[in-house]
Design a protein around this nucleic acid. Sequence first.
DNA 1: GCCTTTGGATAGTGCCGCTATCTACTACGG
DNA 2: CCGTAGTAGATAGCGGCACTATCCAAAGGC
Lengths: 218, 218
Amino acid sequence: MRMGELSRRSGVSVPTIKYYLREGLLPAGTATGRNQADYGDGHLRRLRVIRVLIDVGGVSVTAAREVLAAIDDPDVVGHHLLGVAHHAVAPAARGRRDTEQWRAARAEVDAVVRRRGWAISPDAAALDHVADVICAARALGLDELLAGMDTYADAAELVARHDIDTVVTRAQRGGPGDEQALMVETVITGTVLGESLLTGLRLLAQEATSARTLGDER
Amino acid sequence: MRMGELSRRSGVSVPTIKYYLREGLLPAGTATGRNQADYGDGHLRRLRVIRVLIDVGGVSVTAAREVLAAIDDPDVVGHHLLGVAHHAVAPAARGRRDTEQWRAARAEVDAVVRRRGWAISPDAAALDHVADVICAARALGLDELLAGMDTYADAAELVARHDIDTVVTRAQRGGPGDEQALMVETVITGTVLGESLLTGLRLLAQEATSARTLGDER
DNA sequence: GCCTTTGGATAGTGCCGCTATCTACTACGG
DNA sequence: CCGTAGTAGATAGCGGCACTATCCAAAGGC
């Protein structure tokens, strides 16, 4: 398959594909001449992954490159991999983390983690991320939201179990390419797509619950 | 309070505050002279809300303006309000929605909604959003993820109930400003912060579950 | 043979969220 | 009453990002 066909089948324009090649998101095709190369199904699949990361995950091109590098790296295994996916999904740090309030929020996160018996590496970015949110909520006086944090944690645990199950199941089932790469790809796309899915369903559930609770005062 | 103090207490630089004034995110202070104005606690609070929307919610300045307009509009009531918040949070449409696969995905969403007895306005943006995600997951062959969609829906319902409860509780408790405005603000900030909180906790729960299931092969 | 497509390289575009600068005016301590 | 610091308002600029446009020489393919 050459560039034109790759473009048509992926829905990504030729200049954009060239851009991704330049940026190292997409590996070069196998050259068949001085100015001719051949692309395979792997390239098509990779392009789909890229679009998911960027469009659905809202990941920057730079972050996507790092994630894709992890997909290709055979040394990345187990749940160290989760760190890579999480790092990419996490937005840049929001505010100052050197305030008294922030440290209090961070302690609150640690308390939740301890209470639930979660084994978390202490340098996980998500710990700080959650602390950021708590800090912001406190600043706005949204204590009711935080009072039910265990509800949120319950929900998070529920989907996380399913997510990990998905990865394990899929690794056993096998699929295109080698097992390792498939598992890595599943973790990353599953993390990104799962987040978006959960977010969307939450909004729907909110509307449904609101209609039921507050009545139909549209 | 004048601009300098507002800047210091909010942590937002003076030029940025001016920019928000220009863009209509922040109402002008009450003028006390030709080039002097007075800002109140409302402005401080508003600035905090703006930062939450932009930093935590990842909302664009344009979308933030619309959301804030809804906060100020006394005619926006009940769960019509949810629509505004959801519209702002929702990212722009990702791909083409005119394909056969997309319509199939959309039908799948409708099926879930019907199965759970959710009363959803048929033009809710979240319906399309979820369909986008399903479409992307199918394209990548991530069927295992979708097989457990009810797990995701359960989790979504769990937090949504809590979210709506929060709004109701808070409206009753009262607080600064009039009830209506407080409720609106709670919906919006709660939607945005809750999403970020849920996302962060999911990542933590994933790591914990992964460590438990896959063992410690770091 | 000749028009189309390709790989490769370089430069440019449009948007977005600020940031810098300027001017004229005001507040305030001394 | 002076001098310095702060302020409102307006305009212009900046840096980053995700593409997009253009050009060239070399295949491809009928």
